[in-house]
């Protein structure tokens, strides 16, 4: 056991750690302040005044709504595909040892291990070779590819903690594979899948690198933002959109964290 004296960190370490955390969070805080500034031409600090006006202006912008709708649609479809692909491959990889198992894991991790631009360019050139016109589905194709790994990682971790004998016990008690999946496997991995799905949704919702290459003329919310960043038109609206994008991804991430944590808690009790 460490003495209580020992377990206190040196002040310098503590300061450095807290400063590091602040470095990671203060810039995001700034987004929230700018969303309410009265200044509309520059990024002036401190803001000359605060107003709620831009929330209303943004609310009435059809192009923002259009982009928002596309982003939500793409994120929802990609998440569903990632859930199916990720769960099935996680089940295969964690339940049995087979030739090529390492290859499958590598295949799933590759889309995030390689820089996003490579995935994007590869898909874009494949679309042009195969003469596929850009559509919602070309965006989904790219997003689902890198979302699979998020679901897969969560599912594999949960499968590893779930005892294999549960499946055998269920079969022993008269349940076939499908009944076992429905009554035993699914309830035990549900929170992990939900968490993986949430993270996949957040990842897809704000992805921009692959999307610019697979979207054609369509604009998701991040692409709309990127255009505003490169050629600003109405800065306050961009500020509000930035805040909204942050919040839309923030909520599922936080939920995912609590889901994973609770899952750990429950399975820890069983031991």
């Amino acid at each position: 056991m460490r003495s209580s004296q020992d377990s206190r960190a040196p002040l310098s370490l503590k300061t450095a750690a807290v400063c590091g955390l602040l470095f990671m969070h203060l810039p995001i805080l700034l987004i929230f302040i700018y969303a309410f500034t009265t200044e509309d031409k520059t990024y002036q600090w401190p803001p000359p005044g605060f107003t709620l006006k831009w929330l209303g202006v943004t609310w009435n912008r059809p192009d923002v709504w259009e982009a928002m709708r596309l982003s939500l649609k793409v994120a929802a479809i990609s998440t569903c595909i990632a859930l199916v692909l990720g769960t099935l491959s996680a089940a295969a990889v964690s339940r049995s040892k087979f030739f090529g198992r390492e290859t499958i894991s590598l295949l799933i991790i590759l889309p995030i291990a390689l820089p996003g631009i490579i995935t994007g360019i590869a898909l874009r050139s494949a679309f042009s070779i195969a003469d596929i016109p850009f559509s919602v589905w070309t965006i989904v194709l790219g997003h689902a590819t890198f979302c699979v790994v998020v679901v897969y990682n969560n599912a594999v971790a949960r499968f590893r903690r779930t005892s294999t004998s549960l499946v055998e016990a269920s079969m022993d008690l008269g349940a076939n594979s499908f009944q076992t999946f429905r009554y035993i496997i699914l309830p035990n991995i549900a929170t992990a899948l939900l968490a993986g799905g949430m993270l996949a949704f957040a990842l897809s919702f704000d992805e921009v690198i692959v999307t610019t290459l697979t979207a054609g003329q369509q604009a998701t919310l991040p692409i709309w933002m990127l255009e505003e960043l490169v050629r600003p038109r109405q800065r306050p609206v961009t500020n509000v959109v930035a805040m909204v994008v942050f919040l839309v991804t923030f909520v599922p991430i936080l939920l995912a964290y609590y889901l994973i944590r609770d899952g750990d808690h429950v399975s820890g009790q069983g031991k």
Binding site: I31, D206, P222, I253
Partner: peptide, 11 residues
């Protein structure tokens, strides 16, 4: 996990 583009925008 939070939005990449928003973080760049903040800077």
């Amino acid at each position: 996990w939070s939005s990449y583009l928003v973080k760049v925008y903040a800077w």
